[in-house]
Amino acid sequence: MMDPASLRAIALRQFRRSWVGQVGAILVVLFLIVTVLAPLLAPYDPIATDFANVLSPPTRTHPLGTDDIGRDILSRVIHGSRVSLQAGLFTVAVALTVGLPLGLLAGFRGGRVDDLIMRGIEVILSFPTLVLALGITAVLGPKLIHALFAIGIVFVPHFARLIRAQVLTVKENDFIAAAEALGASDVRVMRLHVLPNCLAPILVQSSFSIAFAILTEAALSFLGLGTQPPTPSWGIMLAMGRGYLEQAPWLGAFPGLAIFVTVLGFNLLGDGIRDALDPRLKT
């Protein structure tokens, strides 16, 4: 068995070789910088209105133009990144909190427990993603936090199944049998021996999920079930911009571009990590 440090070195080397992963990493880092420094980067208050300057095309004072009630679009796109990051992190947290223990338990215990959990998961899985998220937000009420919670729940099956599959392969290893032979409790085995060996796929899945969560939040906000005005969300900006495609295309174009670039970044990063951690690709 190789020592962990050199495994990490191989993965890192592998990652450095893939331009896909690097472009993804750069985009994600840029996104994080914008998110953290939003108040410093935004030239205006994202909810400050200027009724004398409505639907202004991009100018020197408003590089991305103004929206239908005279707010600076650049500032709104910058601040909107925070809603998107929140969406990504919160939903993955929800999905992990619920999906991880379920997947671990199902995979490790097997038998009836496995059947029970996985059939339940399949019920959730049988709903189309967005429809389920819509249903949950419709019941809970149109608030950002509800929308994010809904997306998180929608992701649970993906995490649970992935982790279960990983556990099934990991638990056949000799070191598990050894730990059990030494009298380690189930919880201890799961925590110390099974879980760490499942981290790689979880990381990849999280990266993809963040991208999908950003998209879904935008979709729910677009449909009026997520962020409430005047909070800037890319989805809401896109929804409002759609009506002005002819008169003022910049209203929808820039938040749309922001969604595109961010989602692309997280997807590329996910691809890069997957390739780096794939044992078959190891050289």
Binding site: I47, A48, T49, F51, D68, I69, P229, P230, M240
Partner: peptide, 10 residues
């Protein structure tokens, strides 16, 4: 309606 409400809000 959203636009009108946001104007009043401001």
């Amino acid at each position: 309606q959203i636009q009108e409400l946001q104007i009043v809000q401001a």
